[in-house]
Design a protein around this nucleic acid. Structure first.
Length: 284
DNA sequence: ACTGTTACCTGATTGC
DNA sequence: TGCAATCAGGTAACAG
């Protein structure tokens, strides 16, 4: 599931392939994603040179030499397909399902946006106004940047009357966390996901900021070190395997606990309709 | 104003 | 074996 580390990894993989290249042909196959693709998208991308990349939360921008940035959100199931363009006389490759946008580059590669569930979106915004896009306005601080401090986080949590789990999923509190990394960060900070957000202060808040940072940084490092692995045989830049400590590990022993009978292991509960994984002995 | 719930969407998994 | 029900989750519309 593409949260900040996966988005960062996909963007880096795409940058390695696209930086400096010209999009020679662009085709929209399906425009009704999360929102309708902007009219004229293919025409405005065609002929443009890719000059830069930037990530913001779970979004990233592909910057083009004409002053446009392509805004990309992978939603739940979005991926980028990257493959050498087949020689013109070669047998057609197996059609890839759910390819909603396809582009050719001047150095003979074929790049596509693939999203079966269509929760993702693409849009155009002027590069000098990226942060004014409606989907980014109101977004909280980048967790890996210096502006994300204990004081800033505590101030954002102070007026929240929700469990800390729900508060950290709120993109206006901190950008880029999703269900997996909220669970992992709260485990790293030893904070119960059920604790009221406004009661996360003092020593807990002091642990939470570095816990979020190290959790995300480790996942990015894992993605970066497995660039070959997460680019699958199909040639898709997607998600990588990562060793979660609590996520998806219901009933498994917690690595910080001695095991039964002292600790029943990792529990799964449902908060605001989503699974939360945690160790009730370690996280308070 | 704020909070919790549901719809959106399709593939993978589970249950009968 | 096959089909239906369930689950996954980012975001926003909706309800309270």
């Amino acid at each position: 599931m593409p949260e900040l580390p996966e988005v960062e990894t996909v963007m880096r993989g795409l940058a390695a392939r696209l930086q400096g290249r010209v999009l020679t042909q662009v085709e929209v196959r399906r425009a009704d994603l999360r929102w309708l693709l902007p009219p004229g998208l293919a025409a405005r991308l065609t002929g443009a040179r890719v000059i830069g990349f930037r990530r913001r939360g779970k979004y990233f921008f592909v910057r083009l030499d004409g002053g446009d940035s392509l805004l990309v959100h992978l939603g739940m199931s979005g991926r980028m397909g990257v493959a050498p363009a087949p020689p013109s006389l070669a047998a057609p490759a197996l059609p890839v399902a759910h390819e909603h946008l396809v582009a050719m580059t001047n150095d003979g590669w074929r790049v596509s946006f693939v999203d079966p569930r269509r929760f993702g979106c693409l849009d155009l915004v002027r590069t000098d106004a990226e942060d004014t896009h409606r989907l980014l306005a109101g977004m909280g601080p980048e967790p890996l940047e210096p502006a994300f401090t204990q004081a800033i986080l505590s101030a954002a949590l102070a007026h929240k009357r929700t469990p800390i789990k729900a508060a950290l999923l709120d993109q206006s509190v901190v950008a880029g966390l999703g269900n997996i990394y909220v669970c992992e960060s709260l485990f790293a900070a030893r904070i119960s996901p059920r604790r009221l957000a406004s009661s996360v202060a003092g020593a807990r808040a002091a642990r939470l900021v570095p816990a979020i940072r190290t959790t995300l940084a480790a996942a990015i490092a894992a993605g970066g070190s497995s660039l070959r692995d997460y680019r699958q045989a199909s040639g898709e830049l997607g998600y990588f395997q990562h060793a979660w400590k609590v996520y998806g590990r219901e009933a498994e022993p917690c690595e910080l606990c001695p095991g039964p009978p002292a600790c029943a292991g990792i529990r799964r509960i449902v908060q605001s309709g989503r699974s939360t994984f945690f160790c009730a002995r370690v996280q308070r």
